[in-house]
Computed example of a mutant assay.
Amino acid sequence: MKTALVLGGTRFFGTNLVEELLAKKVQVTIANRGQREDSFGDRVERIKLDRVEKQSIIEATRGRKWDVVFDQICYSSHGALVAVDAFRDSTNHYVLTSTLSVYGSSKEHFHEEDFDPYTYPISYARKENISYQEGKRQAEAVLFQKAPFSVTAVRIPIVLGDNDYTNRLRFHIDKVMHQEEIGFPDIDAQLNFISREEAGAFLAWCGEQKLKGPINACSNGVISLKELMSLIETETNQQAKITKRVTDENASPYGLDHSWTMSNEKASFWGYEFSDVRQWLPPLIKKKVAEAKIVPLY
């Protein structure tokens, strides 16, 4: 991989993806609407386009070709079909950032074969008219069934790290620090996580390997919500107020009624070495608690 186009790439772990590619001496072009500043300086090329409008992409990329296209911002069958048409002659491989959510919640632990995008019925819709889960399912289905280039769909769980615009981890920290209730349907439920650094590194690795098909990516190990809260209690030196009485005000963004995890065995088999979640999560929580004490979220 000598050249790469990154759709998005200026927010959260998208910036880690770009930095990983640059570290590998890849010539990187980032494409978005040009409304968000980035820290890449003259190390990247920038082009402006509207990700969901085919003609906008065709005009912005006419006559160009990249070894790999990384798509951080595809959320629907419409967006995927636009990509199939617009990049037909622009790349040989496509890496879609997908999600654990494509599996639904019918059981507790998922492997890649538990959702088959090659046979999933396609229903055309824009992202504003469809749920996040169904949008990602449709995006995978369109790309795997209709793209003339090879495709990798990287399915990731909750991503944690600095500059997390969702503030989901911070929600729990602030609730504990303010001694406010947090509602969990099942405090013993287990989850996978991945750090923003590892998410970016794995996406770049997939671009190098050009593996075909869906592939799960998560740190080794699972964390129960009880253990997560215990880590926060240790760093804040306060006891969390946990309740099963879930309301709009206290509902945990991680509040599940049963465990929801994925296997990373396929990626490990192909040679990727994941970190252990307990290596990086406690230090991250420590850092976030320190930040919360200096700059309140609310």
Rank of each mutant, 00 (worst) to 15 (best):
H78M: 04
I73Q: 06
H109Y: 15
Y298W: 13
Q133S: 05
A217C: 14
T99M: 02
N220I: 13
Y254I: 10
I294T: 14
S39T: 11
S105F: 11
E291S: 05
S131E: 08
A292H: 12
P148M: 02
G255N: 14
T99C: 04
Q145R: 12
V154P: 00
H93L: 07
I122N: 02
D71I: 04
Q145T: 14
Y118Q: 03
G183P: 09
L228G: 08
D186E: 15
V52M: 07
V246D: 11
V95M: 09
R51D: 01
G255M: 13
R245W: 00
N192D: 13
T261G: 09
V176L: 09
E140P: 06
E198N: 10
G79V: 05
E20T: 10
L256N: 12
V18M: 07
T61N: 00
L21A: 04
A240W: 06
P117M: 08
E19Q: 15
K127Q: 11
S259N: 10
I194M: 14
P253T: 08
Y94C: 04
F269I: 08
F202K: 05
Y272S: 05
M1A: 07
P157E: 13
T61S: 10
K175L: 07
T152Y: 04
K24M: 12
N192L: 13
N264A: 14
E265A: 15
K288N: 09
V68I: 11
T234Y: 05
S76L: 02
V68L: 02
L49G: 06
L96D: 07
G183H: 08
L160H: 12
S263H: 01
E140I: 07
V26H: 00
Y75F: 15
R62S: 13
W66V: 06
A60H: 02
L100G: 04
I30K: 01
A125H: 07
P157T: 13
V84F: 03
S131N: 09
A83D: 09
F274C: 08
W280N: 10
R278I: 02
L7T: 07
R36Y: 04
Y132I: 00
M177C: 07
H258N: 13
V289Q: 09
S76T: 02
L5C: 08
D42M: 02
Y298A: 12
S263N: 03
Q209K: 15
G200R: 09
V6I: 05
K244Y: 01
S39I: 10
D85K: 07
K24W: 04
Q145Y: 11
F87G: 00
R51F: 04
H109C: 08
F193M: 12
A83R: 00
S195H: 04
K25P: 01
G79P: 03
K25G: 05
L17P: 02
L231Y: 11
G8L: 11
A189S: 14
I47H: 00
W66P: 03
Y254H: 11
F144G: 06
D116S: 12
T243D: 03
I294L: 15
P157K: 12
V151K: 01
T247E: 01
L169I: 14
A251H: 10
S105T: 15
G79T: 03
